[in-house]
Write a protein that binds this DNA or RNA. Structure first.
Length: 324
DNA sequence: AATGTCCTCAACCGCTGTCGG
DNA sequence: CCCGACAGCGGTTGAGGACAT
């Protein structure tokens, strides 16, 4: 027996929300702010459980949610982050502030998984049968390759999503969200993140408004965005491909730091590294195994935090912030 | 036009983690 | 420390639309 339901089942409405219900919910939250969900059904008269209200808000009505097709850039980020983090949709969503974890999860399950599988078998059939290679690792390589070759774009054109699948009602909720624009900017932070979201970044809608922290330390979000930019992903892919395809490659180009010497040490080219990016100035020792490619810089970068290589002040700057 | 099948995604379910009394 | 309430997360479902026959 699990925990009893969050609310009495009797008299509770389930299924799709109506525009009227949305308006009631949005109006209430507009007045009282998100949170204290238990009181929402009581105070609004909605025949919904508190959990349903919360989900409706966080996954659909919340201002700042971007709907519609995922851009190739978002797609690339999702693929790469999924390969790195696994099915940690909330963590992945924190890097795409305008997307909900539900959206990303759905997009992954309905589009990207198939897309990658197809692409993977097309470019590297033996990988699919290689049981010694983890799926995530395979996908990581595939994602990099596909990005480097621009093939995701091509694939996207072949697998074009059916546009405008959202109903007319969806557009009406979009209008609701638009009506709420501006309000969230002045609303209080509704919640704090749990410890399980240690990878979370500032997922607020006002990322662009944040000042770069003192000391020229860029936010982790911006940094990751930079790392995951097409150019860098292309370089990562080139680097990884050379690593995978040639077991005896010479100096390998590291997209972020410079060249990778044969012993795995990265030789920094300063012009590639922003001065403010002290973290990236560190000499990074990569794995030099010939059976597995060395950790990409992104992987290293993500692992750095858990390895405690960032001092406390930096951790404060990089620590997760509240999401909306 | 009718029917069957496939696909998408909003919503739900069940579980875990956190927090306050 | 225990317990209950609640928030958050990931997996799953099913209604409805798109597409194929």
């Amino acid at each position: 027996m699990g925990r009893p339901p969050c609310c009495e089942k009797v008299g509770i409405k389930k299924g799709p929300w109506t525009p009227e219900e949305d308006i009631i919910l949005v109006s209430y939250i507009q007045e009282h702010g998100p949170g204290n969900w238990r009181s929402v059904p009581t105070n609004t008269g909605l025949l919904r459980c508190s959990k349903s209200c919360r989900l409706r808000w966080t996954n659909y009505l919340r201002p700042g949610i971007k709907r519609g097709n995922f851009t190739p850039h978002e797609e690339g980020m999702i693929i790469h982050l999924q390969a790195l983090l696994g099915n940690k949709w909330a963590a992945i969503a924190s890097y795409l502030p305008q997307r909900t974890d539900n959206d990303i999860k759905n997009y992954w399950n309905t589009h990207l998984k198939k897309k990658l599988k197809k692409f993977q078998s097309a470019i590297d059939p033996h990988m699919a049968s290689d049981s010694t290679t983890s799926t995530s690792h395979q996908l990581n390589i595939v994602s990099r390759r596909s990005l480097s070759e621009g093939s995701l774009d091509n694939m996207a054109s072949h697998f074009t999503l059916k546009n405008n699948q959202s109903s007319t009602y969806a557009s009406s909720t979009a209008n609701i969200s638009r009506l709420l624009e501006g309000w969230m900017r002045s609303s209080p932070t509704p919640k704090t993140l749990s410890n399980t979201n240690h990878l979370k970044l500032n997922a607020s809608d006002d990322l662009q408004d944040q000042e770069t922290p003192a000391g020229n330390l860029v936010s982790r979000h911006e940094e990751l965005e930079s790392i995951l930019s097409y150019e860098n992903l292309n370089n990562v892919a080139s680097w990884d491909r050379s690593t995978c395809d040639s077991t005896q490659s010479d100096n390998k180009l590291n997209p972020r730091c410079g060249r990778v010497a044969n012993d795995g040490e990265i030789i920094h080219d300063d012009h590639l590294v922003p001065d403010h990016d002290q973290k990236n100035k560190q000499i990074i020792r990569c794995e030099s195994s010939t059976s597995a490619p060395p950790l990409s810089f992104l992987e290293k970068w993500l692992l750095d935090e858990s390895a405690g290589q960032v001092d406390d002040d930096q951790m404060m700057e990089l620590s997760p912030m509240s999401s909306v």
